[in-house]
Amino acid sequence: MYNFTNLIKLSVGTESVDGLAEWQKIPQVQTPDGLPRHVTRMWPKREKEILAGGSIYWVIKGVIQARQRIVRLDEVTGQDGIRRCAIVLDPELFRTAPAPRRPFQGWRYLKPEDSPPDMSAQRSSDDTLPSELSAALAEIGVL
């Protein structure tokens, strides 16, 4: 039994895990203390479970390909005066076993038992396959 939960989110416009890492280095997507963040409209109701060890799993080109530990949730107010949630992340990206996912909007909760495992250190340093090939192989259960 797990005492935490994860989030899953589409990384829209991202072509690869490396592209996600580069995007997160842009100062506009970082907190004042230099950590990457993702700002979202909805505040998670299961905040305590997320902060008890949860990660955000990134869907890139239709496949879960990476995860990041969630450090904290910060309240931010947009220029429109609306309160939002900044999901603050550890900068380290862990590549995961590819797992296909259909498109969805926003973020969703992802049970730990439904989360793909991290790739071994040896595998994560392998050359990455093109996203389309990785998705096709994951779909038929080869990866």
Results as ranks from 00 to 15, higher is better:
Lys9Asn: 01
Lys9Glu: 02
Leu10Ser: 09
Leu10Gly: 08
Leu10Lys: 07
Gly13Val: 06
Glu15Asn: 12
Ser16Val: 02
Ser16Thr: 03
Val17Ser: 06
Asp18Thr: 02
Gly19Met: 08
Leu20Tyr: 02
Leu20Ala: 11
Ala21Gly: 05
Ala21Thr: 06
Glu22Arg: 12
Pro27Tyr: 00
Pro27Lys: 02
Val29Met: 13
Pro32Val: 14
Pro32Cys: 14
Pro32Lys: 13
Gly34Cys: 11
Gly34Lys: 13
Leu35Pro: 12
Pro36Arg: 08
His38Gln: 12
Arg41Ala: 11
Arg41Thr: 13
Trp43Tyr: 11
Trp43Leu: 14
Pro44Ile: 12
Pro44Phe: 07
Arg46Val: 14
Glu47Met: 07
Glu47Ser: 07
Lys48Cys: 07
Lys48Ile: 13
Gly54Trp: 02
Gly54Val: 03
Ser55Ala: 15
Tyr57Cys: 15
Trp58Gln: 06
Trp58His: 07
Trp58Ile: 09
Ile60Met: 07
Ile60Leu: 15
Ile60Lys: 06
Val63Ser: 08
Ile64Arg: 03
Ile64Gln: 10
Gln65Pro: 01
Ala66Cys: 09
Arg67Ala: 15
Gln68Ser: 01
Arg69Met: 14
Ile70His: 03
Val71Trp: 00
Val71Arg: 05
Val71Gln: 02
Glu75Ser: 09
Thr77Phe: 05
Thr77Asp: 03
Gln79Phe: 06
Asp80Glu: 01
Ile82Asp: 11
Ile82Ser: 09
Arg83Ala: 09
Arg83Trp: 07
Cys85Val: 08
Ala86Phe: 00
Ala86Gly: 05
Ala86Gln: 02
Ile87Tyr: 04
Ile87Cys: 11
Leu89Gly: 09
Leu89Tyr: 06
Leu89Val: 12
Leu89Phe: 09
Pro91His: 06
Glu92Arg: 04
Leu93Glu: 05
Phe94His: 14
Thr96Cys: 10
Ala97Thr: 15
Ala99Thr: 02
Pro100Arg: 04
Arg101Cys: 15
Arg102His: 09
Pro103Leu: 10
Phe104Gln: 13
Phe104Lys: 12
Gln105His: 11
Gln105Glu: 13
Gln105Trp: 07
Gly106Cys: 12
Trp107His: 14
Trp107Val: 10
Trp107Ser: 12
Tyr109Asp: 06
Tyr109Ile: 08
Leu110Trp: 06
Lys111Asp: 11
Pro112Lys: 08
Glu113Ser: 04
Glu113Val: 04
Asp114Phe: 07
Ser115Lys: 01
Ser115Phe: 10
Pro116Asn: 06
Pro116Glu: 05
Asp118Ile: 09
Ser120Leu: 10
Gln122Ile: 10
Asp126Trp: 13
Asp126Pro: 04
Asp126Met: 14
Asp127Pro: 15
Thr128Val: 13
Thr128Met: 14
Leu129Val: 01
Ser131Pro: 11
Glu132Thr: 14
Ser134His: 06
Leu137Arg: 05
